[in-house]
């Protein structure tokens, strides 16, 4: 029991630390958020303002913007800690590294994922989505964005210290984002067409459970290799 408690304490320690660091450098969060807004704003400018068309592409467009916005934060997930040596100290903690990694991933989601969920209604209105579809979109992003952080963390850990890691992360991670994108954007689309979103959302949920079980472990293995 006390061991479990210590593990939770370590998890929250890593989470708190990363949140505190973000509070000291707020611009970094705002950059990802601003990116999300600007990409979704540029899209109608490139495609044309017909409400029917916009309504049709809205789920896919917002999901792709969310993928890219998450990627932006990923490169910094471990790189700064790697450069200043604090990651090394984490790897030498008596607590499992995967617990600390889970804390860091949670922080990444709170900073890069959750704001997108909260911002989605505003963008949804720009795309003329009906209110109930916006609800489904928010729900799909709420389940899907943690998944993006979890999968992305593996890529960020693998490319740590590699040449050209910023671009490499995208190459490794984007193909793995395919199922999340399909089920996430598909949920909204099939809701609009009247098929119901339950199937998509529950599959997305199943993927999330799988990723929670698997990703911190794979990320930890990748980090230990990168630290060598």
């Amino acid at each position: 029991m006390p061991q479990l408690f210590a593990m939770f304490a370590a998890y929250f320690a890593a989470l708190n630390r990363d949140l505190l660091l973000v509070m000291r450098r707020k611009t970094e969060v705002l950059t990802a958020l601003f990116f999300f807004v600007i990409v979704t704003t540029l899209l109608p400018l490139g495609i044309g303002p017909e409400p029917d068309l916009l309504r049709k592409i809205a789920p896919g467009a917002m999901w792709i913007a969310a993928l890219l916005a998450t990627l932006l934060g990923l490169q910094r997930l471990f790189a700064a800690d790697h450069a200043d040596g604090t990651l090394e100290q984490m790897a030498l903690s008596p607590e499992p590294l995967s617990i600390l990694v889970a804390g860091k991933i949670t922080a990444h989601w709170l900073v890069c994922g959750l704001p997108l969920v909260l911002l989605a209604p505003v963008i949804g209105l720009q795309f003329d989505l009906p209110t109930d579809a916006i609800g489904i979109l928010m729900l799909s992003l709420l389940i899907g964005t943690p998944l993006l952080s979890l999968i992305g963390a593996i890529g960020a850990a693998l490319t740590l210290g590699a040449r050209g890691s910023a671009l490499l992360v995208s190459l490794l991670v984007l193909p793995l984002y395919v199922p999340t994108l399909i089920f996430g954007a598909g949920a909204v689309e099939s809701y609009i067409t009247g098929l119901g979103a339950a199937g998509h959302l529950s599959l997305l949920g199943a993927l999330l459970v799988l990723a929670i079980a698997f990703s911190p472990w794979a990320t930890t293995a990748a980090l230990r290799i990168s630290l060598e």
């Binding site: 593996i154 590699a162 190459l171 490794l172 793995l176 794979a218 290799i225 060598e228």
Partner: peptide
């Protein structure tokens, strides 16, 4: 392509092998 790019981007061959191994298992 991702596997080959990752392997090529890591200088130490032993590290590249192990990182590539994790990637192909995730894949």
């Amino acid at each position: 392509l991702g596997y080959m790019a990752l392997h090529a981007a890591i200088d130490d061959p032993r590290r590249a092998d192990r990182a590539g191994a994790v990637l192909s298992l995730v894949g």
